[in-house]
Simulated assay, not measured.
Amino acid sequence: MSGFAPDQPGAMVRASPNFGPRREGFRPEIILLHYTGMTTGAGAEDWLCNPASEVSSHYLVHEDGRIVQMVRESDRAWHAGQSSWRGVTDINSQSIGIEVVNPGPLAGHPPFPPRQIAAVISLCQGIVARHRIRPEMVLGHSDVAPGRKIDPGERFPWRALARAGVGHFVAPARHRRGAALQPGDEGQEVTRLQAMLASYGYGLETGGTYDGATKTVVSAFQLHFRPKKVDGIADPATRETLQRLLAALPSRVGERAA
């Protein structure tokens, strides 16, 4: 039983009961990417369509490139959980969720197959066109829920998506010698780091102390933009990569799309 016509051409439909209306005044402005973190794609699909799970996503992309739509793009799927971005805390009302079949830590973070990533790119391109999603609003679950979630993980090919016109990405800065900011540090440089992360969209207070929350957000930033070394330490390469991202923003951060 399909239940509705797919928004994405070529997608199969398996309707999930786990959805509701978007909050008044909200529309899709974020593409939020996840990995399933389960042993099989079939098991993940069943779970996302099981009313007992109380979770869902708009799409599931299997390892062979098959795309399954479970919730209409106009509706609010239940995939983000407790999260925030640019001060918005109801990410489910603001996003379209895509679950990418991958076991993650259950199998040592295996790579994503090329056919699967090609399907993810095509799907994202369609969503971007339908909803005018801005590049910097293509995010991972770890971006909006630092510390609570790590998906889609350090093996997710953000660079490949950006080359296809999906998402905002710059080449990570090369490692170089220099003082790192780390837990326990205080002062203007820490405040500046926190302000840059908050300006990009991460939920972080600018108190001037490199506390646990700051380390957690730096780790989330590294997962997405500097995955070769994810340690929560703001070394010079991490800070330079963040500066490059902010300088390359195609639109001003801090404003919701019109």
Rank of each mutant, 00 (worst) to 15 (best):
Met1Gly: 14
Phe4His: 07
Ala5Lys: 11
Pro9Tyr: 06
Gly10Met: 11
Ala11Asp: 02
Arg14Val: 04
Asn18Cys: 12
Phe19His: 14
Pro21Asp: 13
Ile30Lys: 05
Leu32Asn: 15
Tyr35Phe: 14
Tyr35Asp: 14
Thr36Trp: 07
Thr36Pro: 00
Met38Gln: 12
Gly41His: 05
Gly43Arg: 04
Asp46Ile: 06
Trp47Ala: 11
Val55Asn: 09
Ser57Arg: 13
His58Tyr: 04
Val71Cys: 04
Asp75Gly: 00
Trp78Glu: 04
Trp78Val: 03
Trp78Pro: 04
His79Met: 07
Gly81Thr: 00
Ser83Asp: 09
Ser83Lys: 07
Trp85Gly: 01
Arg86Asn: 13
Val88Ile: 15
Val88Ala: 15
Ile91Thr: 03
Ser93Asn: 01
Ser95Ile: 14
Ile98Tyr: 12
Ile98Pro: 02
Ile98Cys: 10
Ile98Asn: 04
Glu99Phe: 15
Val100Tyr: 00
Asn102Ala: 05
His109Val: 01
Pro113Lys: 10
Pro113Ile: 12
Gln116Trp: 05
Ile117Phe: 09
Ala118Val: 03
Ala118Cys: 04
Ala118Leu: 05
Ile121Pro: 09
Ser122Ala: 15
Gln125Glu: 12
Gln125Cys: 07
His131Asn: 15
His141Glu: 01
His141Phe: 09
Asp143Glu: 06
Asp143Pro: 03
Val144Pro: 04
Pro146Ile: 05
Asp151Val: 05
Asp151Tyr: 02
Glu154Pro: 00
Pro157Gly: 00
Trp158Pro: 04
Ala162Gln: 02
Ala162Ile: 00
Ala164Ile: 00
Ala173Ser: 08
Arg176Asp: 10
Arg177Lys: 09
Ala179Phe: 07
Leu181Phe: 06
Gly187Thr: 02
Gly187Val: 03
Gln188Asn: 09
Val190Phe: 13
Arg192Met: 05
Leu197Val: 11
Tyr200Cys: 08
Gly203Gln: 03
Thr206Val: 08
Gly207Arg: 15
Gly208Asn: 06
Tyr210Thr: 00
Lys215Ala: 15
Val217Ile: 09
Ser219Leu: 12
Phe225Asp: 07
Arg226Lys: 01
Lys228Leu: 01
Val230Phe: 10
Gly232Arg: 01
Glu240Lys: 10
Gln243Tyr: 01
Leu249Asp: 06
Pro250Met: 10
Pro250Val: 05
Pro250Phe: 05
Val253Ser: 10
Ala258Cys: 05
